[in-house]
Amino acid sequence: MSGRAPRAHRLLAIAAATLGALALVAGGAGATRQGVDVVALAREVEAEADHVTARELAAWIRDGREGLRIVDVRTPAEFADYAIPTAENLSLTALTRAAIRPDETVVLYSEGGAHAAQGWFLLRARGVKRVYFLREGLYEWLTQVMTPVLPDGASAADRAAFDSAAELSRYFGGVPRAGGGASVDGDASAALPGASAEGGSAAAVRRVRRRGC
């Protein structure tokens, strides 16, 4: 080894130490996340890989999918009124700071779908990989899971799909209906636990519908 080499090594070591020490000062929170690959996110949205349907979510809950975390981004009052089983309540601001493990699958929902979709982008921008939202929000849960309807004159395929949806619905205490509004299981308000009370899901459906979602 020549006499100059150790000197060059020392200079390189000093340069590395200086840049490393400056990094300690410069490296604010999330510095590696400052860039968001908007092209990749746009492709995910176009590929419809950004959301799940309410029935898919219901099946995940029923099957006890590992690492499933359902986040309700509505207000605490709305959350207390009615929420999807096993959901937790976090505001969008809290969501940006929430600790999310890499093995967790996060499903976001709001009243309609806009806030949850915005939450999806916030989490994806944070680098969280497995995030989905309910496209039509709680409304979709209430209509597709809690009160699925089999229209008059349905085909055999429709009927088969309805049967599995109805089974899922009953698991969550819902009221599937066949044809012009008659409940398959009898009277809806009687079958739904707490349906007559203002906090029940039937009442929640009515409220959501009134808002014109």
Binding site: A23, L24, G27, A31, T32, R101, P102, D103, K129
Partner: peptide, 21 residues
């Protein structure tokens, strides 16, 4: 999933850079 030291240790990336140096 994808694991990085700043995420795992909940420290800014610059801290990890300095520690590795």
């Amino acid at each position: 999933g994808t694991l990085t030291f700043p995420d795992l240790l909940r420290v800014p990336p610059g801290t990890v850079v300095a520690a590795v140096v």
